[in-house]
Computed example of a mutant assay.
Amino acid sequence: MFTIATWNINSVRLREGLVARLLQEEAPDILCLQECKSPVEKIPLEAFRALGYNWIVARGQKGYNGVATLSRLPIEDAGDRDYAKLGHARHVAARLENGVTIHNMYVPAGGDIPDRELNPKFGQKLDFVSEMRDVFHADRPERAIMVGDFNIAPREDDVWSHKQLLKIVSHTPIEVDHLLSAQDAGKWVDITRKDIPEGQLYSWWSYRARDWDAADKGRRLDHIWASPDIANAGHSSRILRPVRGWEKPSDHVPVLATFDL
């Protein structure tokens, strides 16, 4: 049995203390971080190793993007893919000794305008997710878990107002269609929603809100998916909303699930 957490940390060096606090208080066996904004060699690994996280598989770049998987369990590097040929550090895979592969994914945010002609970043996002679909269709995932900041809230109850966000990047119909097509291609199971099928769920609240907690205008952008052969082993999903209230927080909070594998 192991617990996995995913968290867009929005700078691992700036928020090293928050990562350490999470590792101490929640003690997930595996923590997948996104938007590390650091070359791998500058990630504060010694601080995490001191807490028992002796294995890391990561891809980084200076100031942007970056994904890192920290583990108390032995893991090996299982490669990466440059989705949409962006040259970004947005994916890394790690393999556990039991053969389960964990994909740590950071999908592009896509800018502010949901139009690929007016906003190339939106086109890059759609291309990224389209390639995810094609990869999963060509090579159906088995014994796999994919987590990360997908930057898309697919369900109506994954946002504070479905009607008001239909034209807002992260919840537009075209983005949702692309993500659901990628999910279907791999027959991925959304573990969070398997465990918590009803009700509003958010993992991100904007920095722009004066009082994020009172306004509560959130979106569920962070996900834990599992391939169908192991999905039934996933349970005990949680989203750690209080972490958004920690000092100098990320705008995302950790999402966790436990697997009996």
Rank of each mutant, 00 (worst) to 15 (best):
Y202K: 05
N119G: 01
V243E: 14
A50F: 11
S227R: 05
E35H: 05
V135D: 10
P242G: 03
Q34M: 05
P108G: 11
E26V: 13
S170C: 11
G234H: 01
E25D: 08
V57I: 01
E175P: 07
K187L: 15
F259A: 04
L18N: 09
R90C: 10
A257N: 13
H252G: 02
V129M: 02
Q124V: 00
P249D: 03
D229E: 00
D195Y: 13
I4G: 11
V135F: 13
G234C: 03
L118E: 08
D80K: 14
W7H: 04
G199L: 07
W7K: 07
V189D: 04
S161W: 12
A185R: 09
D115I: 00
E247A: 15
G60N: 03
Q164G: 09
R21V: 09
R133S: 09
E46I: 03
S130K: 08
G111E: 02
L86F: 08
P242Y: 07
G245M: 13
P141D: 01
I30R: 07
H88P: 05
S250R: 07
W55I: 01
V57C: 10
T6D: 12
E46F: 15
G245Y: 15
L118V: 10
E35W: 01
V67Q: 00
V12Y: 08
W204A: 08
L73D: 06
R155Q: 06
T172C: 06
R72A: 11
L201N: 01
P254V: 10
R210S: 15
L165A: 03
R49H: 12
G17V: 07
K121C: 03
P114N: 04
